[in-house]
Design a protein around this nucleic acid. Structure first.
Lengths: 333, 333
DNA sequence: TTGAAAGCGCTAACAC
DNA sequence: GTGTTAGCGCTTTCAA
């Protein structure tokens, strides 16, 4: 049988009230000796409070949900890791769930999390058309934070970067290296942030009078990058902007298969700056997302919301930066 | 206020017992009409059972813990994803926690999971010296399954591959390609499975009378692979066996920096067969772990243990296979 | 300083 | 077929 507060009370020869108060640090009024007796009993019987009983008429679980669209994408794995590190440090447990970008799964997870009384929810890379999810969270007064992908529905509680500006910067970098036939690999509008990066590309191309060549994927991974890069290469581009580093892996492969060398025959720029970009050959020039800062800021905001009961926090846009490595050079004539 | 079973009872004009039984599919004895009334009331009031109350005098939570040593390692991310897919399908929620190979974190997670009454725990890549963790789980009669890394302490409940044989096979493959100066990049004995792969390498080398050259890392990632590959290359090896694909990324980089081409100047073989190996240049020859089969088998075993209450399941060793791609060729003289 | 007792929402044994 | 009621382990109000 599990040891209960009753057993402790009996062992220490006090009432259960006394035990409860002392356990929860509300027992200042008790004598030193009572404290000691209770502590000893707890240690002796190896008592652990009962999670369900303790929370029965509470509304806190010390658990925070984290819904991520694709855990095998290193960017998300790195982000989740940073956030978990901070939250665990603060005494929370993170309930990390992978949705594989599936709407139904996302909703299911939100329901299950609310059912389990999570104290907050992070939504990383979930579908942008998520009014129903946010509505549920608001109704239950559970704080949430949106990461990576803005929601059409929420103008607050998000931590993002300026994807459009990043797209412009990446494209301009290629343009300043004399590239004109620049292709772009992006994803459909459900991936709103990645879509925005392509919008930045389009704007930068337009301002130079360059003709854009965009390929749009329905998934963001190495394979889709590979497929679309092939199409672009067949169209004769001299540079490619891959709106996600993971897609850039596919670009490298497609180029290699066609005998194109990077950067001599093809310049490539990515977006995200995942750890692996250092290990691509050549190392990928990319737009850096401050993953650590995003995660830490997100965790802090969440803790603050939980603490204050405030459910709204203004959107934050963190700075990106161009990370120059070796995959882009001046166009060879 | 949250809607409770009482409200439903009142609305439907029945007792709370009736509601409870019908909700839990134990209400065969009630009339069609009663069923309907209760269902209508539930829908009308948008009733949801109370997680803590429901489980208060139960011992099930419909939640399964998953402790992983390094979620940013694609192998683990892929494995976790497969398992979660199966388990979610079966009505469970997976509590995925990343320990960063930290003993304290692992223990903390086990405690928190037990506190939350998880129905089972997966331990993927956790420290091999984990008697204390398994002891806790056994004491609470919570089924567990060990993945990736065997425990010195448990001869059951594991799903592994034959790491030693894999090491032998990888090494022999290099040997049959005329390589003699073969280096090996592995990790310290805390990573028991990876360590075993190196043992296989040593055996294969010894049986040929070749002199082994082993470098041992304290972490398994791209960086450690890079560091150690540098050392091996400086010692003049013509082939490298990287005991983990993620480390092979580092080998590629170290080789490139020294002007060594793969496979012409250096043959490389990896282990795991993560998705990204297809995208390495050249694609990495490696030992395939049947990630999908491992995950599905693990999930099935877990469900069976939960269902039957049986806490022991024999170890399973799944088959590996050599996956030939383009990073190994016959040694050039 | 301490304790008795009500109540959180639900399940299940038992009664009708 | 249906309802009453006693808990599950803990927190908290109120009394002493």
């Amino acid at each position: 049988m599990k040891v209960t507060i009753k057993d402790i009370a009996k062992e220490a020869n006090v009432s259960i009230t006394t035990v409860s108060l002392i356990i929860n640090d509300k027992g200042q009024r008790f004598s030193e000796e009572t404290h000691a007796r209770v502590k000893t009993a707890i240690a002796k019987l190896d008592y652990q409070p009962h999670y369900f009983a303790k929370n029965l008429n509470k509304t806190k679980s010390n658990t925070i949900g984290f819904i991520v669209s694709e855990i095998t994408n290193p960017f998300f794995a790195e982000l989740a890791k940073v956030i978990e590190d901070v939250l665990v440090e603060q005494g929370y447990l993170v309930l990390l769930c992978n949705s594989s970008s599936d709407r139904e799964r996302e909703e299911r997870y939100v329901d299950e999390m609310l059912y389990r009384f999570v104290d907050g929810v992070f939504l990383a890379g979930t579908v942008s058309d998520n009014a129903h999810l946010l509505e549920k969270l608001k109704k239950r007064k559970v704080p949430y934070i949106l990461l990576d992908r803005p929601s059409e529905y929420s103008q607050t509680n998000g931590i993002f970067i300026d994807d459009f500006a990043g797209g412009v910067e990446a494209t301009n970098y290629l343009i300043t290296h004399q590239h004109q036939a620049i292709g772009c690999i992006t994803a459909n509008e459900h991936f709103s942030n990645i879509h925005q990066r392509a919008q930045g590309y389009l704007a930068a191309m337009a301002s130079q009078g360059n003709t854009p060549v965009v390929e749009i994927a329905d998934e963001v991974n190495e394979y889709s990058g590979y497929q679309l890069a092939g199409k672009l290469l067949d169209k004769g581009v001299s540079a490619i902007f891959a709106c996600s580093d993971i897609m850039a892996f596919g670009v490298y492969k497609a180029a290699a298969e066609r005998g194109f060398k990077i950067p001599e025959d093809l310049s490539v720029i990515g977006f995200d700056d995942i750890n692996l970009t250092h290990f691509m050959l050549p190392p990928l020039t990319t737009i850096t997302q401050p993953t650590k800062a995003i995660g830490e800021h997100a965790a802090r905001q969440m803790l603050e919301m939980i603490e204050t009961g405030n459910l709204v926090v203004p959107n934050t846009v963190l700075d990106i930066a161009l990370k120059t490595r070796s995959s882009v050079i001046v166009k060879q004539s």
